[in-house]
Design a protein around this nucleic acid. Structure first.
Lengths: 239, 239
DNA sequence: TAGTGGTCTAGACCACCCA
DNA sequence: GGGTGGTCTAGACCACTAC
């Protein structure tokens, strides 16, 4: 099989919703219609639809059908802040990444990382600090610790472009999941140095431990955003 | 059927993981073993396991098996702040809710709510302000707007105890999903009044629009946390 | 080679909504 | 009653891991 059937169905419908071929508040074709349309079994169609449910794109209603509930980025008409997810997705905004630090250190030289990645003190790590400019202004300081044995040969060039592209495409490793936390913290020395004397000297700090498919932890990331420019959007379902 | 089979399997395994009968880093029984154990088909077992994957409880590895990746609340050994999800779940912490405001208003009297809930200006709403004390100190100001026609007869007693229990158990409505955002904002008049002259006059503000199963929006919630006491935990998978 | 998880099928029965 | 989504089955073939 060239492409998984349920992924094809999922991606096609997702695209239709994003492009508003299927519009907010209206029904999508029924499961039986999709079975016909894609020559798939109903369980396969349902697998695709469940991905859309997970994404917050559709809502299924028994006896009625499935309705598009995704409204693009206009859900929250409250602020014109730069959204965290927009930044992550690189939607429309002009990025510029600068590598401030790229060095090889051992886990003993920094606090917390040893515990976060469950490694011994003498494990070699890459220590990486990058700044992200958006429309000419530094908005994010990204600090990373990566296990060198798992992610070798990081260069400034790789760090400036895309670390994840290097890991996934060149090293052929599969990044799978992460645990993250968001807190608000006051500026430390690094932040004053990079952000300067900002009116509101606080950051939204996102810490994450990132894992490969085989559950190996390979990265500890600390992402510091100017707090006043930070917005995190979330879709969640009730258990 | 009294109870859905895949839910039974899911809940049993979930409980075993939470109670550490299945411990972090070890394998759970294989799909075929679970098929035997629960006298279910493999697809049913897989449906249960996929819920655990979604929850960040297990990681499936092809050719090998499924491994427990959930570690309780100890994943982030970085701060002893009060966690947002802990607060939400009411884990271990002493709550105290006080109702500051409970009134009937129309949508025209407040900004944003009309757009957020997609209602007309003359729609009647409940306006609710509650404060949440944790260990004796007010940490959260919860402000809600609810459509009266959908959620009638809210009393102070209901507001002090559990609004959601009232909606789900007494009114028999099914709360389904919400869109949320998290931002960092400076104190307004209400915050100064309730939190007082706090050293760090900023809040982590969580705004949410909450929907029923049939996609009806019924609630607009604004939850203001003392920024320095806020922590949001997240598990996410890479697409 | 044996065992694991990943995908897919064709059919069944059910609960729910609506005309 | 006809259409919708929700659950479940028994079997098939595949890709990957471990031995």
């Amino acid at each position: 099989m060239v492409q998984k059937k349920f992924i094809t169905i999922y991606e096609t419908l997702r695209k239709d919703i994003l492009e508003e071929k299927l519009v907010y508040g209206t029904q999508i074709p029924s499961e039986n219609e999709l079975v016909e349309q894609y020559q798939a079994s109903r369980e396969t169609v349902r697998k695709a639809l469940n991905l859309l449910v997970r994404d917050g794109m559709i809502q299924k209603i028994r006896g009625k059908g499935s309705i598009v509930i995704y409204q693009g980025l206009t859900e929250f008409p409250f602020s014109d802040l730069i959204s965290f997810s927009e930044v992550q997705k690189g939607l429309g905004l002009e990025h510029e990444t600068e590598v401030e630090v790229l060095e090889r250190i051992t886990a003993s030289e920094v606090p917390n990382v040893k515990e976060a990645l469950e490694i011994s003190s003498n494990t070699w790590l890459w220590h990486l600090v990058r700044t992200r400019k958006i429309n000419g202004q530094v908005k994010i300081i990204d600090e990373d610790y990566l296990i060198e044995a798992l992610v070798p040969n990081i260069t400034k060039r790789i760090a400036r472009q895309s670390l994840y592209a290097y890991i996934e495409q060149d090293l052929n490793l599969v990044i799978s999941y992460s645990n993250k936390s968001i807190t608000f913290e006051s500026f430390g020395a690094l932040e004053y140095q990079i952000f300067g004397d900002y009116v509101v000297p606080y950051t939204a700090t996102v810490r994450g431990i990132v894992h490969f498919e085989d559950t190996t932890k390979f990265q500890y990331n600390i992402s510091r955003h100017l707090a006043t420019d930070f917005k995190f959007n979330d879709f969640s379902r009730r258990r």
